[in-house]
């Protein structure tokens, strides 16, 4: 019997057009002269046709209904999850949820501070030192607030008074008023900077704590669908 270099694999690949152009052409030429290969090609070709002819199993009538009823609880869960996510993103809920974590961080800070004082001085002195520090901080805070408030009220009063007074008291055109406003603002630059910094820092801390707490404290690591 004649032995060919071509294999079954080549013939099936040839019928599925998976051979390279060169190999396809070579096998095509070979098929013209080799009866065995030609016969095998026909058999595989017929097999392919038979495979396509096999009827499909009809889909059960209630399959769609069953699938959708299986999916429904998951869909409800997903809907609830989306609503919860939207709720999380509301500003009020977002900030409200940040408070517990902010308090927790503050408590950790205070406890660390007490331990530090207890180690540096003595444990008997610590309560007094803490009290003194709190009093100092409180007074400092109020004095800063008072100073800032005082300076701000002065600033706004004088600015308003100088820039937008009646025409007979005005000393120049609108541009000069604007320049004057800038000059006044420059005079209170440090207060403005401090205030802006404090507001920005507060917003950042509030946002970070709210974000972290909403993820850690309230989601309980639930897997989202």
């Amino acid at each position: 019997m004649k032995e060919c270099k071509w294999t079954h694999h080549d013939v099936t690949a040839y019928l599925d057009h998976q051979l390279s152009d060169l190999k396809e052409e070579l096998l095509k030429q070979h098929l013209k002269t080799c009866n065995h290969c030609q016969q095998l090609r026909e058999e595989y070709d017929e097999l392919n046709h038979l495979l396509v002819q096999l009827p499909r199993e009809p889909v059960p009538e209630d399959l769609t209904k069953n699938i959708m009823s299986t999916i429904q609880p998951l869909a409800n869960l997903q809907k609830a999850s989306i609503e919860e996510t939207n709720q999380e993103l509301s500003w009020w809920g977002f900030l409200l949820r940040g408070i517990p974590l902010l308090v927790s961080f503050s408590m950790i800070g205070v406890i660390t501070w007490i331990i530090y004082l207890g180690q540096k001085y003595t444990w008997q002195e610590t309560p007094l030192l803490v009290w003194q520090s709190i009093t100092q901080m409180w007074n400092g805070f109020w004095s800063i607030l008072h100073l800032a408030g005082n300076k701000f009220s002065q600033f706004f009063y004088t600015t308003w008074d100088t820039a937008f007074t009646l025409p007979e008291r005005s000393t120049g055109p609108l541009l000069s008023k604007f320049n004057l406003l800038l000059t006044k603002a420059t005079a209170y630059q440090k207060v403005i900077e401090l205030t802006i910094l404090a507001v920005v820092a507060w917003i950042i801390i509030a946002l970070i704590t709210a974000f972290i707490s909403s993820r850690i404290c309230f989601d309980h690591g639930e897997e989202r669908i």
Binding site: A13, C34, Q39
Partner: peptide, 24 residues
């Protein structure tokens, strides 16, 4: 390609009596 060929070869073998000679 290999899975397809092997599967079809088995199918062909079962459908027809085994062929001798010709393609290796």
């Amino acid at each position: 390609g290999t899975f397809l060929y092997r599967g079809k070869a088995v199918l062909l073998k079962k459908l027809n009596s085994s062929k001798e000679g010709g393609i290796r």
